[in-house]
Simulated scan of single mutants.
Amino acid sequence: MAIPALFKNKLSLPVICAPMFLVSSPKLVISACKNGIVGSFPSFNARTQDLLDTWLSQIRSELDEHIATNPEGPVAPFAVNLVVHPSNTRLSSDRAVVKKHQVPFVITSQGNPAEVVEEVHQWGGLVFHDVIRADHAKKAIQAGVDGIIIVTAGAGGHAGEINPFALVREIREFWNGPLALAGAINDGMGVRAAEVLGADFSYMGTRFIATEEAEVEGDYKTMLVDAQVSDLIYTDTFTGVKCNFLKPSIARAGVDLTKFTAKTHVDLDLGESNAWKDFWSAGHGVAGIKHVLPMTELVAQLKEEYRSAVATPAFSSASK
């Protein structure tokens, strides 16, 4: 287990606020970083390369200013998510903008990250790749990535199907580098549990949608607060890759999934996608969301829960 130098003394918790399509924005990213949580966003969220350029300038400028006025920190680094699947027609252009800004941390997904790894390493950046199976992790390691993100059963967005207890231990048999775990981690106890299991970071998305800084419809946040795990559906209907969605959002859009024409192939060219605007994603962690909170208050809550979990004594069979 290892924490790269990029993150040393810059985190209040070993947590990455996951990149969420049509959810993560500069406001959410900057707020997370200012609170010692790695903030990230998918390049797709900036609808043009000019806007991506503007966003990266804004994020770096505001974080640099915050660091200057708050030298004791911690202020976490930020990340950009690049979908490296061949269907992504924006990849080359987005990579050029990421290179221009020499983004310190890049998260790749859905494909071969080798070219991105080679490029990002030229300016000393790190690349973590998300996977849902051990064989995917082995391929990413061969491509030279710096870290692995394990997306397990119960995660929001494009989720895996394997239990985190099984997959973390399987990957730890051949990988001792940085490892992040995604899948229904919703509180500080979950963050600590991920560490005990063998992960260096928790990769949390759904919980951060229910923050004041997340620039999504209020109804989306209300739906998260009201939802239970039974309100989710795991389907590959919309992109050809299985994803967890809130069933009430699909019903709200007037769509009958039994009559919906499903994708017959993987299509992750989401640049002009409208489906995700109407069909809202969430992970199994929704059951633990009770309130919409400001980022500062949520991180303080996570830290307190984490400290409590760390202080929980280990089991002992010694008689008293």
Rank of each mutant, 00 (worst) to 15 (best):
V151W: 09
K221I: 14
G125R: 11
D146I: 00
E161L: 12
V127T: 06
H129D: 00
M204N: 12
D135F: 10
N176W: 03
G188I: 15
F105L: 00
L91F: 12
G160C: 05
A199V: 02
G190S: 12
I209H: 08
N176D: 14
R95S: 09
Y220P: 15
R192F: 12
M189V: 13
E115S: 09
L167Y: 02
D94L: 12
K221S: 13
G144Y: 04
A214P: 07
E212L: 14
W175E: 06
V116I: 09
A210R: 02
G160T: 07
M204Y: 13
A155Q: 05
T89K: 15
S92V: 08
P86H: 01
E161Q: 15
L197S: 14
Y203M: 14
E161K: 15
V131E: 06
D135C: 08
V196F: 14
V196I: 15
V127I: 03
I149V: 15
D200W: 01
H129S: 00
V106S: 00
M223C: 13
G188N: 15
T152W: 00
F174I: 04
M204G: 13
A137M: 03
V97L: 03
T89S: 13
H136F: 08
A143D: 04
A194K: 09
S93W: 09
K100E: 03
R207S: 13
H101Y: 07
E217N: 13
K138F: 06
T211D: 02
N88K: 02
Y203I: 12
Q122P: 10
H101G: 06
N163C: 10
V120Q: 12
A153D: 10
D146F: 01
Q110E: 07
R169V: 09
S202R: 00
A193P: 13
H136A: 05
G183R: 02
L126S: 10
W123C: 11
E115V: 02
I107P: 01
V127F: 04
N163D: 14
A114N: 05
I148A: 07
E217I: 04
Y220N: 12
V117E: 05
A134M: 02
K100W: 00
V131W: 08
A194H: 11
I162R: 05
T108N: 04
F105C: 00
I185H: 13
E195H: 10
F201Y: 08
T152K: 00
V106D: 01
V131R: 04
R133C: 01
I150F: 10
V151L: 14
V106L: 01
E217H: 11
V103H: 06
P164T: 07
L232W: 01
P164L: 09
E170P: 04
M204S: 14
A134D: 10
G157T: 03
